[in-house]
Write a protein that binds this DNA or RNA. Structure first.
Length: 608
RNA sequence: GCGCCCGUAGCUCAGUUGGAUAGAGCAGCGGCCUUCUAAGCCGCUGGUCGUGCGUUCGAGUCGCACCGGGCGUGCCA
């Protein structure tokens, strides 16, 4: 348990005592208050506003309530001092032992530290990405993929059972247009009106000519040619650098789906008609005068009728499929349905909600997580990107370049994940493609990973050079952990479970990222300071070069710090795991760029 | 017109169900490597939190109005 939770419990029991003795009203027990680390160091380790939030209900001035609570808290063995400040804040100083407890929790839980107990959660269907398989995944799709997966990971950490699902729009007009564009390309003709003209269409066409030429003879809308096109878009064209396939692109980002759900199958199995029959039964279908069929949501759900079948009497809109699809989701018995959509779809949410309600699913368990769109720039200029235009920027185009700059496969995926997860989903993003590709060793994601690698390096060196394994933090060793920075970091580690829960509850994986950023900063600052102060964790050569150095060596302090380092490393790795960012055990110093020392010469060189 | 999202340092963004003197990264300037990884550390510079009212002990945070930007308001997906 972190110190925040310990203090929270102490306050709660203090309130119980005060209520029992009649010094506070009984509703004080339900007080809502914060326990937080104050920004100013002289405000102690923790501060709470409990006296202020109670003032109204207790009909007493905040400082008077604060005095009551103070007198009880001061008897707590782990509390050193309690001050009353300002309008009624309680500032609390803790004894070092209060901070040490979290290490035992981390030792016990290991990589599972921060996760909530299993079994307490819900069965969640998380639908995300679901990009049309009529083109490769673009950099803008990356936000959906990475945000959705981040939400999934953090929900899982809180005990929910998450099923990740990708809805494949393999039916209808866009698929037909892709197939026709491929057919045209195979014949050396330009794409049809509204068709696809990007380079990948040619690659698709070449593959089909080489491996399935008979498909070109099939003119049916959902026929062989469409099927081949979709499967190649999903699985990739073997040997092609440009058409890796959506599934492989996602895998390279560390994103895996449990289900790939076909829209076409809904039609093939009559699920669309079946779900419409249910709606007809409920009386929420409307036959329009021109022959079209529309859905009318319950009062207050949506503002107009939405067409399901066009006025030709036979062509279904995408909404028809979505009704059937969501009816199916409801039927599969999940506790919660979550859809991740770009903000450009938000006008669609009301009708979807209206339809789901008709299938008897509780409204407050259906969530649509909207993220704001990514607008692309190239050197500061807006880039217009459409699947029918030529200038597509794929995910690989960006990640490959970062891989190359960092000299490591996967660096680009880590960098992209960091980039998208470092913003709230409501925050619009302007992504300059040239800047993104140039992200080099200054990339903030490497800062995080470097911190982890450093921790690993300490533990590795302890073993290989000194034969020291990470010990359990016994009380004897804990007594050697008193450096204020060490205690502050333990405080930070203790808040991790709370951060994870907040991130899950608010569907805000970026909170984990900012937590780690702060942890990294604390550690790397501490690490350098010890070096300067000649108080390194492991014995240094200035010590070991002397005869009988071991007599001067504070072995317990080293051991205590190893336990401490290992606790940080554990939380670090857990946090990176929640972000889907890799946690390298080693990051060797990159070679110094050549020619750096020559730069002055140019300035000093006499003009010739 | 109406609906949703956003507006915080030069740039990119955090800001814990309203808390004390609003933070970080990048960029800029100045320092720190014979010793556990310098992909690092320390310091400095940088703010009318879009504007104005209101709610209260207290507002970047909540309410209203306005300004500015994005998206939506398709029988496209």
């Amino acid at each position: 348990m972190g110190v925040e939770e310990q203090l929270r419990q102490a306050i709660q029991s203090a309130l119980e005592q005060l209520a029992a003795s009649g010094r506070l009203p009984t509703d004080a027990l339900h007080a809502v208050f914060t326990v937080e680390r104050p920004k100013a160091a002289d405000h102690g380790h923790l501060a709470t506003n409990v006296a202020m939030t109670l003032a109204k209900a207790a009909k007493k001035p905040p400082r008077e309530i604060a005095t009551l609570i103070q007198s009880i808290l001061q008897t707590e063995p782990l509390i050193e001092k309690v001050d009353i400040a300002g309008p009624g804040f309680l500032n609390v100083r803790l004894r070092p032992a209060a901070f040490h407890q979290v290490v035992a929790d981390i030792e016990l839980a290991g990589a599972a530290f921060g996760r909530a107990l299993a079994g307490s959660g819900e069965r969640v269907l998380l639908e995300f990405v679901s990009a049309n398989p009529t083109g490769p995944l673009l950099i803008s799709h990356g936000r959906n993929a990475i945000y959705g997966d981040g939400v999934g990971r953090v929900l899982e950490a809180c005990g929910h059972r998450v099923t990740r699902e990708y809805y494949i729009n393999d039916f209808g007009n866009q698929v037909r247009l892709l197939a026709e564009s491929v057919r045209a390309s195979a014949k050396g003709l330009p794409p049809p009106e509204g068709g696809y003209g990007a380079a990948y269409v040619k690659i698709l066409a070449d593959w089909i000519v080489a491996h399935a030429p008979h498909a070109l003879e099939d003119d049916a809308p959902e026929g062989l040619l469409s099927r081949f096109c979709i499967s190649r878009m999903l699985e990739g064209v073997p040997g092609s650098e440009e058409l890796l396939g959506i599934r492989n692109t996602l895998a390279a980002l560390g994103i895996y789906f449990d289900n790939w759900y076909s829209e076409e199958s809904l039609h093939r199995w009559g699920r669309v008609e079946a779900s419409l029959a249910v709606l007809r039964e409920k009386g929420c279908l409307v036959d329009l005068d021109d022959g079209a069929l529309a859905f009318r949501a319950a009062e207050g759900e949506d503002d107009k009728d939405r067409v399901i079948r066009k006025n030709d009497g036979k062509t279904f809109t995408y909404f028809a499929s979505d009704i059937a699809y969501h009816a199916d989701k409801v039927g599969r018995g999940y506790d919660r349905l979550i859809n991740v959509l770009g903000a450009d779809h938000h006008g669609y949410v009301a009708r979807l909600r209206g339809a789901i309600e008709q299938f008897g699913f509780p409204q407050d368990h259906f969530e649509v997580l909207l993220y704001q769109l990514v607008s692309l720039l190239r050197d500061g200029q807006p880039v217009k990107m459409g699947k029918r235009l030529g200038n597509l920027i794929t995910i690989e185009e960006v990640t490959d370049e970062i891989d190359a700059a960092a000299g490591r496969k996967g660096a680009g995926a880590d960098a992209l994940r960091y980039y998208y997860l470092s913003r709230r989903n409501e925050s619009p993003i302007e992504l300059d493609i040239e800047v993104a590709k140039k992200q080099n060793l200054d990339n903030p994601v490497f800062y995080l990973q470097y911190g982890h690698a450093r921790l690993c390096a300490i533990l590795r060196r302890a073993e290989t050079v000194f034969g020291l394994h990470v010990p359990r933090l016994t009380p004897q060793l804990a007594a050697r952990l008193v450096h204020p920075d060490e205690l502050a970091m333990l405080q930070q580690l203790g808040s991790f479970p709370r951060i994870v829960q907040d991130a899950a509850r608010e569907r805000a994986p970026h909170k984990t990222l900012f937590f780690l950023q702060e942890l990294s900063q604390q550690f790397q600052s501490y690490f350098t300071r010890l070096k300067v102060e000649h108080d390194a964790i492991l014995p240094q050569s200035w010590l070991t070069s002397e005869q009988g150095w071991e007599a001067k060596w504070d072995r317990d302090k080293t051991l205590a710090r190893l336990a401490w380092v290992n606790a940080i490393r554990t939380v670090y790795a857990a946090g990176l795991g929640l972000l889907g960012i890799s946690a390298p055990q080693r990051m060797d110093r990159p070679p110094a760029p050549e020619g750096v020392q020559e730069t002055d010469d140019e300035l000093d060189a006499p003009a010739s």
